[in-house]
């Protein structure tokens, strides 16, 4: 048994199961918000459609593509680590971090524009307008905002994993940290996959 092999005290499956248990709570957290969305959609269908028309599809589509690419890059970094291709692993992690950054910049411009035209929580335009649209934008800010926070946390975790790869602490036999960071990032992507059609593509 060489030094790089896992010692009897390591439990790679256990580490992953722990991460998944946490991800289940995240699924229920966002799931609850989606239930709220679904119920209000059935009550205020017309207003939700009007609200959806005021969101920019191009921003939504661009961010969808960006997150899909970043998820691919993170998955590729794990394959690279397993194949002992450190350079590829670092490169793909850097690419996924860049994608996360572009996502946040897009979000900044998107939200900024909404604020400019008076579409923000408690704005006069929303308070005086139809109730359903106020609810639609309320949910839009809560869900995309919470998702945005997850992007920031995910980027932080990925950056830590990247530093560990650089330092040689993540090896072809011990990569649970990178794998768990990746799982978190994929979950953030998974949630966006549902946000995109529900908010941006509703007609």
């Amino acid at each position: 048994m060489s030094l790089h092999q896992t010692s009897p005290h390591d439990d790679e499956t256990g580490k992953k199961l722990g991460m998944w248990l946490f991800l289940y709570t995240e699924i229920i957290l966002f799931g609850g918000l989606f239930v709220l969305y679904a119920v209000y959609l059935t009550v205020h269908t017309e207003d939700f459609v009007e609200g959806g028309k005021q969101l920019d599809r191009l921003f939504g589509l661009a961010n969808t593509v960006i997150l899909l690419i970043s998820s691919f890059a993170v998955a590729a970094s794990i394959t690279a680590v397993q194949k002992s291709q450190k350079g590829v692993a670092l490169g793909s992690l850097a690419a996924s971090l860049l994608c996360g950054l572009i996502f946040l910049i897009n979000k900044y411009f998107e939200w900024g524009h909404k604020f400019e035209i008076g579409l923000y929580p408690n704005s006069e335009r929303l308070l005086d307008g139809p109730t359903g649209q106020n609810i639609f934008f309320g949910l839009y800010y809560v869900i995309t905002g919470l998702h945005g926070i997850h992007i920031v946390i995910g980027m932080t975790v990925l950056a830590v994993a990247m530093a560990y790869v650089q330092a040689g602490k993540i090896t072809p036999t011990r990569f649970a940290l990178l794998e768990n960071a990746g799982l978190y990032w994929h979950l953030v992507d998974l949630i966006w996959i549902f946000i995109f059609p529900l908010f941006y593509l509703i007609i």
């Binding site: 994929h186 992507d189 996959i193």
Partner: peptide
């Protein structure tokens, strides 16, 4: 039906991410 089609496609995409990317 639009919302159901959207959810169906999103679920398909989610399944791909789950099975392959998330291993």
């Amino acid at each position: 039906l639009n919302v159901w089609v959207a959810l169906l496609i999103a679920s398909l995409k989610g399944t791909l991410v789950l099975l392959i990317f998330m291993h």
